[in-house]
Simulated scan of single mutants.
Amino acid sequence: MNLTVKQVAKLTGITVRTLHYYDEIALLTPATITEAGYRLYNDENLERLQQILFFREIDFELKNIKEILDNPDFDKVKALEKHKKLLELKRNRMEKLITLVDKTLKGEKEMSFKEFDMNEINKVKEKYKEEAKERWGDTEAYKESNRKTSKYGKEDWEEISKDSAIIYKGFADNMDKEVSSPEVQHFVQEWQNHITKYFYNCTKEILAGLGEMYVADERFTKNIDKYGEGLAEFMSKAIYYYCRAHK
Rank of each mutant, 00 (worst) to 15 (best):
E120D: 05
L53Y: 01
Y128F: 02
K125Q: 14
A9R: 01
R56W: 09
K123P: 01
D75A: 08
N201T: 15
I224F: 12
R56E: 03
R48N: 06
D173N: 06
L231W: 03
N193F: 03
T139A: 11
K133I: 03
Y152I: 10
Y21F: 03
R17L: 12
F234Q: 06
E24R: 07
E158R: 11
I14P: 07
D138L: 05
K78V: 08
N223F: 15
Q192W: 13
A36Y: 08
K177C: 12
L11V: 03
R17P: 12
I239H: 03
L40M: 04
K143G: 01
F74P: 05
P30C: 02
I160V: 13
I166L: 15
D117H: 04
T196Q: 07
K197D: 04
E115A: 15
F74H: 06
K109S: 04
N45K: 08
K197E: 12
M235P: 15
E130C: 01
H186K: 11
E44F: 06
N223L: 04
F199H: 03
Y168D: 01
A165S: 13
N2V: 00
K123D: 00
E81F: 01
L97T: 00
Y38K: 12
L40R: 08
L86G: 14
L49C: 04
E115K: 09
D70I: 00
H83G: 13
E110L: 14
M175V: 00
K247R: 13
L69M: 05
A172W: 00
L28I: 04
V124M: 15
T18V: 14
M1L: 04
K197C: 00
D225A: 02
Y214A: 04
A36M: 09
L11M: 14
I160M: 11
Q7G: 03
V5H: 13
K76W: 10
K96H: 11
F199R: 11
F54T: 06
K76N: 08
V215A: 01
D225W: 06
